[in-house]
Amino acid sequence: MNIRKNIVYATLFNTTGSQILMVENRGEHGDYYTLPGGTVEHDETLHTAITREVLEETGFTIIPGDIVHVAEAFFPQAG
């Protein structure tokens, strides 16, 4: 059985549009960078989720714009 998870990411540009904001993550195989984002919680809209995730990860309050990309993935259920 596969589990579906809704994940959101934000692309946040600086005022000139020449840089994007990335967050540093620490993993068991070293540090890496991603766009701010994460899992959509139960009964949360995509816009609410990305607003919450960006605030949690960066301290910035955003007003989300349009959704620009959708992808679907299923993950094997951990037993």
Rank of each mutant, 00 (worst) to 15 (best):
T16A: 13
I7K: 10
A10Q: 04
H42L: 00
A71M: 15
T51C: 08
V40D: 01
F74L: 10
D31V: 13
T51A: 15
V68C: 10
N2R: 15
G17S: 04
E53T: 02
V54P: 04
P76G: 05
K5I: 08
T11Q: 08
V23G: 03
Q19T: 04
E41D: 06
H69V: 08
E72L: 10
T58S: 03
I20Q: 12
A49D: 00
F60R: 04
Y32F: 14
R4V: 11
E24H: 08
V70N: 12
P64E: 03
T11H: 04
N14K: 07
D31E: 02
E72I: 15
T15E: 15
R26S: 10
A71Q: 15
I3M: 14
E56T: 01
M1F: 12
F13N: 10
H42A: 00
T15D: 15
G65S: 04
R52N: 05
I7F: 09
Q19P: 03
T34E: 12
D43G: 06
M1H: 15
R26Q: 09
T34K: 07
V40E: 05
N6Y: 14
H69A: 11
N6M: 11
D66Y: 06
E44A: 01
E56N: 13
T16C: 04
I20R: 11
G30T: 09
T11C: 04
G37T: 09
T39D: 11
F74W: 10
M22K: 15
L12K: 08
F75A: 08
F75W: 10
T15L: 14
L21K: 11
E44L: 01
G17H: 02
Q77G: 09
Q19A: 12
H69G: 06
I3V: 12
N6Q: 14
A71G: 15
I67W: 01
E41G: 05
T39I: 15
P64T: 06
H47V: 02
E56K: 14
A71V: 15
F74K: 13
Y32N: 07
T39N: 05
H47S: 10
R52G: 03
L35I: 00
T34S: 11
V8T: 03
D43V: 06
N2W: 14
G65F: 02
R52S: 02
K5L: 13
E57P: 01
L46G: 03
L35D: 02
K5P: 01
G17I: 01
V68S: 10
H47Q: 11
S18D: 15
E24I: 11
A73Y: 09
Q77P: 01
E44S: 01
N25C: 07
A71R: 14
T58D: 06
E56D: 09
M1P: 12
F60D: 12
H69W: 07
F75C: 03
L46K: 13
L35E: 02
E44C: 02
I3R: 15
E28M: 09
Y33T: 05
L12D: 00
E24D: 10
A10K: 02
L46M: 03
T58V: 07
T61F: 03
G27F: 02
A73C: 06
D66I: 00
T34V: 05
L21D: 00
F75L: 10
T61C: 03
V68A: 08
L12C: 04
T15H: 13
F75V: 11
F13M: 10
L55H: 09
F74E: 08
N2M: 14
